[in-house]
Design a protein around this nucleic acid. Sequence first.
DNA 1: GCTGGTAGGCGTACGGTGTACTCCTAAGAA
DNA 2: TTCTTAGGAGTACACCGTACGCCTACCAGC
Lengths: 216, 216
Amino acid sequence: MPRPRSLTQAQLATAALAVIDREGLSGLSMRAVAKELGMSTMALYRYVDDRDQLEQLVVELVLGAVDTAPPGSEVPWRQRVETMVGRLRDCVGAHPEIVPLTLTHRHRSPAVLRWSEVVLGILSEAGFQGGQQVIALRGLLGYVIGAIQQEHLGSLSAAGTVAISELPPDRFPHLSATAQRARHIGVDQEFAGGLDMLLRGMAAMLAEGAGSGPSS
Amino acid sequence: MPRPRSLTQAQLATAALAVIDREGLSGLSMRAVAKELGMSTMALYRYVDDRDQLEQLVVELVLGAVDTAPPGSEVPWRQRVETMVGRLRDCVGAHPEIVPLTLTHRHRSPAVLRWSEVVLGILSEAGFQGGQQVIALRGLLGYVIGAIQQEHLGSLSAAGTVAISELPPDRFPHLSATAQRARHIGVDQEFAGGLDMLLRGMAAMLAEGAGSGPSS
DNA sequence: GCTGGTAGGCGTACGGTGTACTCCTAAGAA
DNA sequence: TTCTTAGGAGTACACCGTACGCCTACCAGC
């Protein structure tokens, strides 16, 4: 076989991620990545079918860094789930610009599959039944994605909240009062609080076993 | 004053939404909307600064249809929250293509502000304290957005799940088994189950009052 | 060492996008 | 009727993703 590849997919993804980190997601283009690598635009297409596929590589690079080793089973399930959620959040949060990409590509990501597998294992061991497992997993995944998004575009302490707190209090009494308070809540505190709420709900579901009967 | 405007912003948004519904979100372009209205491309810029602003109008058109009348206060808070969440989901679900737009524009949407105001009122009346209200609201909003997204790109019964259920069971024992079951869970059932979980968590938070102390 | 074939890499070109700028003209005010 | 102003059209530019065709560096077999 002639002429070995001079670039790995990881190198390609790294270059694209560098462009994103430097110029933002809107700065990502085939031409920019090619320049980053010192090659011509069309040379990229030897490694990638599509811009879409390049984005997938970037997502995989970031999400692949998530530690998916199952946490020690001596700690309670709740804490283990917190650990898994925290790892996912940390890795995505390190590159907030790619959040929109994760939304589009996560369902094809092996890293997310591995993560889901481990979380399902924890849930199963904790005693969640079939249908409950699905709902709990989707709920957790949805929460992390949603929370990261909210954090990224307009956290509680950001300009948006300030604007809200200046709304006419007669038309938005609760909202303006709440926004005043919300400015003092850190993003970590908010994330932890929301997760706490979700986990309490899961625990309640586990205790009662009701609400979502499996199909069987 | 000369020459009254011949188009309202609502007409503009309606035309853009028609394009989206017909050709998908990727078919949305200034040229396409102009053609839909039978005018030249640049004429749109008399009404809108930006493509971004046009998108905002579309989001507002869809989200503005959400009924934000507070549900009757005789029913318990839990049920009232379910009503509000359901209304939001129904309106967005009627135009699934705009989901990505709502992610980018919702924090500037008056309709979302009204919705949030009403939900905060319900939570406040139910007895949630300051910091808890914020977390509960963000949790709810995040859940709806996240769930709609998951529904739209790859629901449990869609092709993605089928692919997952065909994974090598030795490497993904829980995932492949769960995906088999998940295929039989309807999207409505899944949504309701997740919301139920969240509401249980909120109820637990309310009962114990712990976890997320307000800043004061 | 030579040669053939494969695949890496490059340049050009096309159809699309958002939008800045300039012009013409329709319509209300005087 | 004329002036003023804003609506609308047309052109043009920079940028995008990528289809296509070319040249050439590399490795296998001889």
